[in-house]
């Protein structure tokens, strides 16, 4: 992966821009050959990550910056994409960011689980100074399955 992203956008932490971000991700993923199922799942993971920044990182403030960087690529004819989401919210211990136990049926806490289930890799780290950085990687699997089972490496 080259250090410079192919695409990098800065958006405000306003939920009205979530649909636009999903459209961008979906358009790029389709273009490099992801199936429609995987494209939807990648867009969902990005949506969930952005929602978490807006709700928990920025406590619903709508004018704070979020950066989304994309590195689309293909390996042996298969598409893959690296997506990095960065913010200036407070630092959180990456070990404390985890999805909830799915056996416990309750509202909330699903976003991180969905991200980890859908993507091949999802790693949180603190940015120098302030803010968090989420790096997500997804490769097109040989066989799509509905739900979150299309990658599950």
């Amino acid at each position: 992966m080259s250090s410079r992203p192919h695409i990098r956008i800065e958006m405000q932490s306003n939920p009205q821009y979530l649909a636009g971000a999903r459209e961008l991700i979906s358009g790029v993923c389709r273009r490099i050959g992801f199936t429609e199922m995987c494209t939807s799942q990648i867009a969902l993971a990005v949506d969930e990550a952005l929602c978490n920044v807006m709700r928990h990182g920025y406590d619903k403030q709508t004018d704070r910056p979020i950066w989304v960087s994309l590195w689309p690529d293909t390996h042996a004819g298969k598409p893959e994409i690296t997506i990095v989401i960065e913010d200036e919210a407070r630092h959180v211990d990456p070990c404390q960011i985890k999805g909830r136990d799915l056996d416990d049926v309750k509202p909330g806490g699903l976003g991180v689980h969905i991200i980890r289930e859908v993507m091949d890799r999802a790693e949180y780290e603190k940015r120098p100074g302030r803010g968090m950085k989420l790096t997500m990687v997804k490769k097109q699997p040989d066989h799509d399955k509905p739900g979150g089972e299309c990658n599950c490496s």
Binding site: M37, S40, Q41, L44, L102, V105, L110, H113, I114, E117, V118, P146, G147, G148, E149
Partner: peptide, 12 residues
């Protein structure tokens, strides 16, 4: 199917 997928991911 698209909406059902998120219920499946969440195993709900």
């Amino acid at each position: 199917p698209r909406v059902l997928a998120i219920f499946q991911i969440a195993r709900l």
